[in-house]
Amino acid sequence: MCYMREFRIFVAVYEERSFSAAAKRENATQSAISQRIRKLEEVLAVRLFNRTSQRVEPTPAGTTYYEYAIQLLDKYNEANVALQRYRGVEGIVNVGIPPWMSRHVVPNILSRFMDEHPNVVVNVTDGNSVLLCEMVSRGELSLAVIAASDLREEDKTLAVSEGVLVSRGPGRPWGVGRIQRDPADLAGIRLIVPKRGQPYRTVVDSFLELHAVRPKQVLELDSVFGTLGLVAKGDWHTILPAFVLAADPDQELYNVQTLMEPPHFRLSCVTSANGDTAACRSFMRMLEGELSRITLNALPLSRPLLSI
């Protein structure tokens, strides 16, 4: 059987027309080169070179073999270059995210991440923060981005955002003539809030209690998409983090108003025991970069807290 080493030695002898020159080129001894060529000729059952005291001349068979050998070596080198991209980060990333991020954030980075890390498998699960935390604790997710009303010591804060009052549009571009609403104005509105037990519900309830505000009517709905759909079609309002609206390509459908003494919402990252891998860290760096871009778009209503 002939290996790449034999092909390289054969090509060196053919091009140098000398065993000694080929030996120098291949960092080998002249006798080793001569033995390799002799063994190759035995395997192929054909003479490749005519030896003289002065030179080594290829036979017609040797010339034909050379034409194929250099093509094979070129393909071998191309294959090695192609495999370089698979020799970096590898593994599996099981990531959990809020549903709004599955539409507006993750698609912006997923293709780029897979191109840069083709040997990494990414599995994305969307769900509410309570469910995602449970999945992390069971080891079903490597990491999860969650809404947070309080922060455990081991959690990492990704972004903090002021809450904004959202009603039916048309809206204005971010930062253009936004009206600041007094919390007392919320007493006469119909307000959509997350279900009890969800972190952002705690934030909204604390804000309403602080300002002694009781909305005209309250509807509990966990879906951000469902909430915005109702807001866009009727006289319902909601309070959302500014970064959620800044990431929404349909933000012109809504009227977004800032609030005096607004509530503050936080995104944090929780990880499981299997989340401390190179693949997970690489994915989080890219996700943090995208969140940073979004939160900067929502400034001064939100700010990134990232170290990337």
Rank of each mutant, 00 (worst) to 15 (best):
C2R: 12
C2S: 07
E6N: 11
F10T: 02
F10I: 02
V11N: 06
V13C: 08
Y14V: 04
A21T: 06
A21W: 04
A21Y: 07
A23Y: 06
K24M: 09
A32P: 01
I33R: 05
I33L: 05
R36L: 15
R38M: 04
K39M: 11
R47F: 00
R51C: 01
T52M: 04
E57W: 06
A61Y: 06
T64M: 12
Y66H: 12
A69H: 04
L73H: 11
K75L: 15
N80P: 00
Q84F: 01
V93G: 02
W100Q: 06
V105W: 02
V105R: 03
V106Q: 03
N123I: 12
L132I: 03
L132N: 04
C133G: 13
E134W: 03
E134Q: 15
A144M: 00
D150G: 10
S161T: 02
L165A: 11
V166W: 02
S167R: 13
S167Q: 11
R172V: 10
P173Y: 03
A187D: 15
R190P: 05
Q198W: 00
V203S: 00
E209W: 07
R214S: 15
K216L: 09
E220V: 02
D222E: 13
V224F: 07
F225T: 12
G226Y: 10
V231I: 02
D235R: 14
H237E: 13
T238M: 09
L240S: 07
F243Y: 14
M260K: 14
E261G: 09
P263C: 11
C269H: 01
T271Y: 07
C280I: 05
S282H: 06
M284F: 10
G289N: 14
A298M: 01
S302D: 07
L305R: 14
